[in-house]
Design a protein around this nucleic acid. Structure first.
Lengths: 187, 187
DNA sequence: TTATTTATACCGTCCAGCCGGTATGTAGCG
DNA sequence: CGCTACATACCGGCTGGACGGTATAAATAA
């Protein structure tokens, strides 16, 4: 059952990533926690780069699956992909494990441009089925940027954000269309 | 002239960081480019952690100096620290070197919580002299989050943002006070 | 004044551990 | 017999950093 082995490797690698960070993600560290040997690992992933790519792809798939789930359950077609993105990024309960994985993945992408590119591809793939994104709508972009900023703040604890502030931010984001109007008023 | 040696080490380390990323920043790599030996490096920075902290502090000082410069030249007191932050993060011409350093610093902070904490301290220190920040104003926070999201997008090239979109974003950010009104309308 | 100690700044080598990866098997299966 | 899916042993490079020096200059004591 080679496929099972593969996913076991990937799941374990993500677990290691969550616990020890990207520097702790070594081939040996994965092998230690797994029911088979280093040879098996290197059989399925010929080198560490391949493993890392596998991990990113695995995370990317989960990410996209979550977005798709939110997307299809959204009754309104217009802008649903953006809304699903926002919910995925900011609404999900943030466990310590999520934070660790987020940090590690961010670090990995920051270190290795190839991984960043790969993650970007997942982001793009998840940005589908939405006329606003297709049109490159300004407001959807802004909402995404704000959500990304909030996500990063969550990862690093940059700003201390109160629950009320967070709720306000979330509702503003979900409203989602107001910023361009605002711009026109100011201009 | 021990102080000069110290700053030479730090500058060189940042240079290495920009060129080879955080994984390329080894003690030997710094020593190679410097007029003295490894012993000297270890004399000024007893271990690698100390060197990394020094690098973060050095970057933090530059960052804060830039913000202070923008702050004092801003005629309007109200909200100047937030505006200075925005300008520093989004207005500056982004060279490839800036991107590399940003990536590397981000990675370093994502990997090592202690460094993240240290950077956070610099951020806090730069967030001074502003009644809105003191009051934890929602709009200033939102502008910062959006700017952070844009900064990250610049680092990774996540979104393709046209010059017009960028200009629009910048002006919206500088306007900076409208979002709370908007929230009330929506609520 | 001079001798002695102490602290600073720096040099250059060597090592031990870790880590990615290779090389060489082998057991099962079609 | 050859291919897949593993196991085991081993290696060499890199890296952090320990260590044992040296040169200089200031502090201290005689």
């Amino acid at each position: 059952m080679p496929e099972a082995t593969r996913t076991e490797i990937l799941d374990t690698a993500i677990e290691v990533l969550a616990e020890k960070g990207p520097l702790g993600l070594t081939l040996d560290a994965v092998v230690e926690r797994v029911s088979f040997s280093k040879g098996a690992l290197l059989h399925h992933f010929p080198n560490k780069t391949a493993l890392l790519e596998g991990v990113i792809d695995s995370l990317g798939e989960s990410f996209m699956a979550q977005i798709e789930a939110y997307t299809v359950q959204d009754p309104q077609a217009y802008g649903r992909s953006a809304r699903a993105y926002l919910r995925t990024v900011i609404d999900e309960p943030v466990t310590q494990r999520d934070v660790s994985i987020g940090r590690a993945a961010l670090a990995a992408c920051a270190i290795d441009p190839a991984l960043a590119q790969r993650w970007k591809a997942w982001m793009k793939k998840a940005r589908y089925d939405d006329p606003r994104d297709a049109a490159g709508a300004d407001d959807a972009l802004m909402m995404r940027l704000l959500a990304d900023g909030l996500w990063m703040s969550d990862l690093f604890g940059t700003y201390e954000i109160s629950p009320e502030q967070r709720r306000a931010l979330a509702s503003l984001l979900m409203a989602g269309t107001a910023l361009p109007e605002l711009m026109e008023q100011k201009a």
